[in-house]
């Protein structure tokens, strides 16, 4: 994996959750995935995915070794994509119950807003992504109840945003990693590649 220099190296936070499914989706979408368990592993990554799982569990680990602050800094300058629990971690504010979050996405997120596991569902609908309807797998999903003016809504369910983008921050309340369709991961890889060439361009201008 390390020899693959042409592909962007994107981390997947591998504290708890379906990080393996994200790594497989990233590989399909043209990236070189790396599992991240410690803060020093963020060095040199072109982007990061915060996977689905239990946000309370993931938060416990971020409390140690300044991981929370280091991650917050990483997310403020690099592309980042959160799904479900990952989207909760990215939000500006979390409700039901209130908990700490990275605050890099200008949105309010309510946990377990659609009910318990028996209320989990799969929805197929048109989104802002080209290529026809997108399958969206919702599992004990959170709801984005409020977004700031710079947040672009790319997909909705019953009037609530389920896929949003704010600059190089992407968030989904569903699980694109559990569907065979790779368009959402491809979009994230494009965001990473664009941010990378932008950075390279800035360097050229400066020197």
């Amino acid at each position: 994996m390390t020899e693959n220099r042409s592909l962007p190296r994107i981390g997947v936070l591998a504290i708890q959750g379906d990080y393996a499914a994200h790594a497989a989706a990233l590989a399909d979408a043209g990236a070189d995935p790396l599992e991240v368990r410690q803060p020093d592993q963020l060095k040199g990554l072109a982007g990061l995915i915060l996977p689905g799982g239990e946000s309370t569990t993931i938060l416990k680990f971020l409390d140690k070794l300044n991981f929370f602050e280091i991650l917050q800094e990483f997310c403020s300058v690099n592309p980042v994509f959160g799904t479900c629990a990952g989207a909760i971690l990215l939000a500006r504010e979390v409700r039901n119950p209130a908990q700490r979050s990275l605050g890099v996405l200008d949105a309010v997120v309510e946990r377990n807003a659609y009910g318990r596991q028996v209320d989990s569902s799969i929805l197929t609908a048109e989104t802002a992504l080209p290529g026809g309807p997108l399958e969206m797998v919702f599992i004990r999903a959170p709801r984005i109840v409020n977004t700031g003016s710079t947040v672009k809504v790319l997909a909705v369910r019953d009037g609530s945003p389920v896929l949003v983008r704010q600059g190089s921050v992407l968030a989904a309340t569903f699980h694109p990693e559990l569907s065979p369709d790779r368009r959402v991961h491809q979009l994230f890889v494009q965001i990473v590649n664009a941010a990378h060439s932008q950075k390279a361009h800035e360097l050229e201008v400066r020197f």
Binding site: A14, G17, Y19, A21, G53, A85, S121, V137
Partner: peptide, 17 residues
């Protein structure tokens, strides 16, 4: 089937936990 995919989906979320 939708039903089994959702069931296995929750199991996926518990991995590493």
């Amino acid at each position: 089937s939708t039903s089994l995919r959702l069931k296995v989906g929750l199991a996926e979320m518990l991995k590493g936990g």
